[in-house]
């Protein structure tokens, strides 16, 4: 599919299929179209051409969204409400409220002690964690996480990733965008995104191997330069 904003082609002929239970990393620099792609998946944007299926349903489809967890890049929370109230709100609005599950989610993001604090009193990292908890609140089958680990300290980042893997083992599919290459190693499969185009797709090892690169970063740069040369007449 493609998406134009006026004359800007934000997503250019991208075709992606994500398997159930895998962690798919959308990797690319700022402005490469990661957020646009995620918003297209959710039906928040309509593709200029092409189409999307999510969990077997054609998008846009409101019902499917009940099974999808979404975490925006900047934390989107109700400042006056407490941590728990925010999480409970998103669980209820998505049609699946389970008190025990919410306790578990709050524990996961390590906010049990602050669950009664209004969001406006939290630090940036705590907001990010609350945001993740909100995306998890309704027990989604598919999670679309837009740069979830920005502003999270290294220790908690490890916790996040181990939890992402636990979720994947339980059959939850995760799409995670990032511009941090070393995080990408932990995804099952990766998509390199640059200027709205999908440069390459595959596991981290595959991608490194293809370009005889020692690091993912190197591989990415090589893919990018090949693409540019190829585009020249």
């Amino acid at each position: 599919m493609s998406k134009n904003f006026g004359s800007i082609r934000a997503v250019d002929n991208v075709s992606i299929s994500i398997r159930t239970g895998e962690i798919y990393g959308l990797l690319g620099p700022n402005g490469s179209g990661k957020t646009t792609l995620i918003r297209l998946f959710l039906g928040l944007l309509r593709p200029t051409s092409g189409g999307i299926r999510l969990l077997g349903e054609k998008i846009p489809n409101k019902k499917v969204l009940g099974k999808v967890g979404y975490m925006t890049q900047a934390s989107a929370l109700y400042e006056e409400l407490t941590v728990r109230e925010n999480i409970a709100f998103f669980a209820q609005i998505s049609g699946h409220y389970d008190r025990k599950w919410i306790d578990e989610v709050i524990e996961l993001v390590d906010l049990t002690e602050r669950e009664k604090s209004p969001v406006r009193t939290l630090s940036g990292g705590m907001r990010q964690r609350t945001s993740l908890a909100c995306a998890l609140a309704h027990h989604p089958q598919l999670m679309l996480l837009d740069e979830p680990t920005v502003g999270v300290d290294p220790q908690l980042r490890v916790t996040f990733w181990s939890y992402f893997h636990q979720l994947a083992e339980r059959g939850v599919t995760l799409v995670i965008s990032s511009h941090v290459m070393d995080e990408a190693e932990r995804c099952h499969r990766l998509g390199f995104l640059r200027q709205g185009r999908l440069l390459a797709e595959g596991s981290a090892a595959d991608l490194r191997h293809k370009q005889h690169a020692a690091t993912l970063e190197e591989a990415f740069l090589k893919f990018a330069s090949v693409r540019e040369k190829g585009a020249l007449p």
Partner: peptide
């Protein structure tokens, strides 16, 4: 504050 976007991504 971005919550409208989040609401939009719910049913």
């Amino acid at each position: 504050q971005g919550t409208m976007e989040r609401l939009a991504a719910t049913p």
